[in-house]
Structure formats: structure tokens, C-alpha cells
Computed example of a mutant assay.
Amino acid sequence: MSKDAADKKNIEDAEIIISKTLRAGVAISATITCVGLVLFILTGDSGYPGETFPTSVREIIKGLVVFKPYAVMLSGLLILMLTPVLRVGVSIVTFIKEKDYMYASITVTVFLILIISFLLGRG
């Protein structure tokens, strides 16, 4: 196999891995969100009094531990939000495996920007 053919194969393999990661994240997110919706419909209660709801990841996790329907739905949405971040992480590993250090460093920069934006957006 020529170098060009091997490079093309590596790119295709990387795209398949990234595609499967995105699909899995969306499927898991949808499943968890639907479980929360079914719990909400069956119980008729969000698990929180009045008009209150969890506003932080810590509160969502606390509600998830005790299986509060609204917390379960929000967990699914949180996973959906984190799926693209996971995709960037998978891309970093893929580029390093391919010894494409320029793209790996660019992707690490994007990953750090995403993490910083999540941390700054908590307030």
C-alpha cells in the first residue's frame, strides 16, 4: 500500500471513530432524556418543589442519584452538550496516533478553550 493510500485509510478510520463517538453520545443522551421523561409522565412530578429546578452540575448529579425525573432529563441534556467535547478529545488521541502533531496541538488548544468556556460559564 502506498503512503497516500495509507494516509487516506488512516483519515477514514479516524472519521469513522469520530462518527461513532458522536452517534453514541447522541444515542445515550436521548435514551437518558427519554427515561427522565417517562419517569416524569409516570410520577407526574419533577422531583423538585414548585418552580425550582437544579441549576448546577452538582445539583443535577444529586438529583440523579435519587432518580428525580427532571434531574434525569437534565443529565441527558448535559451528556448531549458534552458529546462534542468528547469528540474533540477523541480527535486529539487520533491525531497523536497518526503522528500528526500539528493538528494534535491545534485540537488541544480547541479542547482547552472549550474547557475554559465551560468553567467560566458556570457563574
Results as ranks from 00 to 15, higher is better:
Ile92Ala: 03
Leu39Met: 15
Leu64His: 05
Pro84Trp: 08
Pro49Glu: 08
Met102His: 11
Leu112Tyr: 01
Phe53His: 10
Gly89Tyr: 00
Glu51Val: 03
Val66Gln: 07
Asn10Gly: 13
Glu15Tyr: 12
Thr33Trp: 07
Leu112Asp: 01
Asp45Gly: 09
Leu74Val: 00
Val108Ile: 04
Glu51His: 04
Val110Lys: 02
Ala6Glu: 07
Leu42Arg: 06
Lys3Val: 06
Gly47Lys: 01
Ser117Arg: 11
Asp13Ala: 13
Asn10Cys: 12
Thr109Met: 07
Lys62Met: 06
Ala104Val: 03
Thr107Asn: 01
Asn10Val: 12
Ala71Ile: 06
Pro49Ile: 00
Val72Ala: 02
Glu51Thr: 09
Ile115Met: 13
Val26Lys: 12
Thr83Leu: 00
Asp45His: 13
Gly47Ala: 05
Val88Trp: 00
Tyr48Phe: 15
Ser29Arg: 08
Asp4Val: 05
Cys34Asn: 02
Val93Arg: 03
Ile116Lys: 07
Ala24Gly: 08
Ser91Glu: 11
Ser56Asp: 07
Pro49Lys: 06
Ile18Phe: 09
Glu12His: 03
Thr94Gly: 09
Phe111Asp: 13
Thr43Leu: 09
Gly89Phe: 06
Lys8Cys: 04
Ile32Tyr: 02
Phe111Ile: 11
Lys3Gln: 08
Val57His: 03
Asp45Glu: 12
Ala24Lys: 05
Ile115Cys: 12
Lys20Cys: 01
Thr94Trp: 04
Val72His: 02
Glu98Asn: 14
Ala27Tyr: 14
Ile113Glu: 07
Phe40Gln: 12
Ser117Asn: 13
Leu112His: 00
Ala6Trp: 00
Leu120Ala: 05
Lys97Trp: 04
Lys97Asn: 14
Ile116Tyr: 14
Leu78Thr: 11
Thr55Gly: 15
Leu22Lys: 14
Ile79Thr: 00
Leu39Asn: 08
Ile28Gln: 01
Ser2Gly: 15
Leu86Cys: 10
Ala5Leu: 08
Leu114Pro: 13
Ser2His: 12
Lys9Glu: 13
Val85Tyr: 04
Ile18Arg: 07
Arg87Pro: 00
Thr31Cys: 10
Arg122Leu: 15
Ile60Ser: 11
Phe95Met: 10
Lys99Leu: 02
Val108Lys: 03
Leu86Ala: 14
Phe53Trp: 03
Leu78Gln: 07
Ile106Gly: 09
Tyr103Met: 09
Ala27Ile: 13
Val57Ile: 14
Leu42Asp: 05
Phe40Val: 00
Thr109Lys: 01
Val65Trp: 11
Phe118Thr: 05
Gly63Asp: 09
Ile106Pro: 06
Asn10Met: 15
Ile41Pro: 00
Ile16Val: 13
Met73Arg: 12
Thr21Arg: 01
Gly47Cys: 04
Lys68Asn: 06
Lys97Leu: 09
Ile116Phe: 15
Gly47Gln: 04
Thr33Phe: 14
Cys34Gly: 07
Leu86Glu: 03
Val26Thr: 12
Leu77Ser: 08
Ala6Gln: 03
Glu59Gln: 15
Phe53Glu: 07
Lys9Trp: 01
Gly63Pro: 10
Ala5Tyr: 01
Glu98Gly: 09
Ala24Phe: 14
Val26Cys: 02
Ala24Asn: 10
Gly50Gln: 09
Pro84His: 10
Ala24Gln: 03
Leu42Lys: 10
Leu37Pro: 05
Leu39Ser: 13
Ser19Met: 14
Glu51Phe: 04
Leu86Met: 12
Ile60Asn: 13
Met102Gln: 14
Asp4Ala: 12
Asp7Tyr: 12
Glu98Ser: 10
Leu39Ile: 01
Leu64Cys: 08
Ser56Leu: 05
